[in-house]
Design a protein around this nucleic acid. Structure first.
Lengths: 141, 141
DNA sequence: TGCATATATGTAGATATGTTCAGATGTGCA
DNA sequence: TGCACATCTGAACATATCTACATATATGCA
């Protein structure tokens, strides 16, 4: 199979093998703006401390900042910083009660996302998929 | 409600409101090692270019490096770097055909994860949930 | 009003990450 | 074998991110 030269959006020559597939994929591909949003969301989940905070909320349902800090064993100020980012992105929501502020996961998408990901790492079958023989994959633990 | 002082694992005094809930959550909380793995996975998804690569593979099924580069419009060497990270984490898998190497999403977990996340950002109802009135949430677009 | 508490915010230095260029590897073909 | 091609790898620079400390805001209560 020989590669052919095609002119990309930016005017640069680009070598492609299957121009038709590239073209059709490009048309269906998520937009740059949407990809940026997706990446932003994933990146927020991509920090150990934020991850632990989120899984703590997944287990507890609702926690105030100081209990959250005690649960994940980190300084309250760090928890607060983390929560701000998560709040801004609508991943968690908050409710004030007196001088405490209680945080919870904002919606079911997030809960599913956290669950699904944990399952992925544990090598379980995907949600909604029929049970099937577990893949042999290099275990981590 | 008055906060009480509790001694954490590290020996530091920590203020908590609901000691019982903190304790029970701590016991059910994912381990540090697992949180680290989860965060590592999310972080890999948290880069615009890698995100676009993954969604391109989601649409196309399978693409060689140069077609992938043409699809997402980035230099082949950057795509290659990105793919290495994704490959190491078992997010994508590869197959050699002559001097080309074709990449695909490694498993259904990843596909579900990508789909679910896209749905989340589009404010749809979560997978598997009954249709219900859309939440009023601040739109992005 | 004044003080203690619970949380939020600003900022700076250390660290991690992404991009790019140069060059290495591996495959097919004459 | 030697060359062209497709992809990979290493390293350096610019940029983004996290952490920690100091300080600010907001609430409850005396």
């Amino acid at each position: 199979m020989q590669t052919e030269s095609v002119v990309g959006l930016d005017g640069c020559a680009v070598r492609v093998v299957d121009a038709a597939r590239v073209d059709s994929t490009r048309r269906r591909l998520v937009s740059r703006a949407e990809s940026a949003d997706l990446a932003r969301l994933f990146r927020l989940l991509g920090d150990v401390n934020r991850t632990r905070i989120l899984y703590a909320l997944l287990e507890a349902g609702e926690l105030c900042v100081c209990d959250l800090a005690a649960t994940v064993d980190m300084p309250e100020t760090s928890v607060s910083h983390a929560l701000r980012l998560l709040r801004t992105a609508n991943i968690v929501s908050s409710r004030r009660d007196g001088r405490m502020i209680f945080y919870r996961l904002d919606d079911d998408h997030i809960r599913l996302l956290l669950d699904l990901t944990r399952q992925h790492l544990r090598h379980d079958a995907p949600v909604g998929a029929k049970a099937r023989p577990a893949r042999t994959r290099r275990a981590r633990d």
